[in-house]
Amino acid sequence: MGESGILAKLLNDSAGFFLQQNSFALKEAANRAIENAALANDKRMAEFAMVAYCLHKLLGKQHIVRDAKWKKLGSEILADLRSAADAMEGEDQKRFEESMHGIISSIESTDRQLGYFTQGLYEKARVKYASSAYALGLGLSQAAELTGANKKDLLNYIGATRMHDEQLSAEGIGERLAKLKQKLGGA
């Protein structure tokens, strides 16, 4: 199955998860998508990962899903998810982009009207999934480019994670500092 086929399936499945309010499954779909996106440098897949993550977060907020406005917003999101899935199956790139844009607008609208925080959910998703792409092995700029995250935000975010601790150096900090001083002529 090519990347388009994988994305179409993820979109179809996610429409079902969204309807069932299965936020955990949406998060899993997002994580699968970013892995594929990182390997294939696929921005559409990365965009889906961010969208699925945002939907996972929205469904987890009681004050959002219980709000009267959510019914309409949720219906619009579901319709756009199904439209995006159809478009991907039919390889209609234009309709796919319009549908995804519609979902992102609905997410941002929900966030604006019902969210508690100043930083938008979709912007947070950009940084989070750029961080995931970096953890999966992409270079910093490449990861930022994949999701449209700002590199400064990304560096800040990564700095608060333990991913660099996974790649422990064979040399301790004292040895590394001594080597650096030697290279720099003892400065």
């Binding site: 390997l39 294939a40 992409l138 270079g139 910093l140 700029s141 490449q142 930022a144 480019e145």
Partner: peptide, 14 residues
């Protein structure tokens, strides 16, 4: 390479 294609690790920035 993975899954039949190259893995693009580096951006023009680096």
């Amino acid at each position: 390479f993975a899954k039949g294609g190259p893995v693009s690790l580096m951006h023009r920035g680096e």
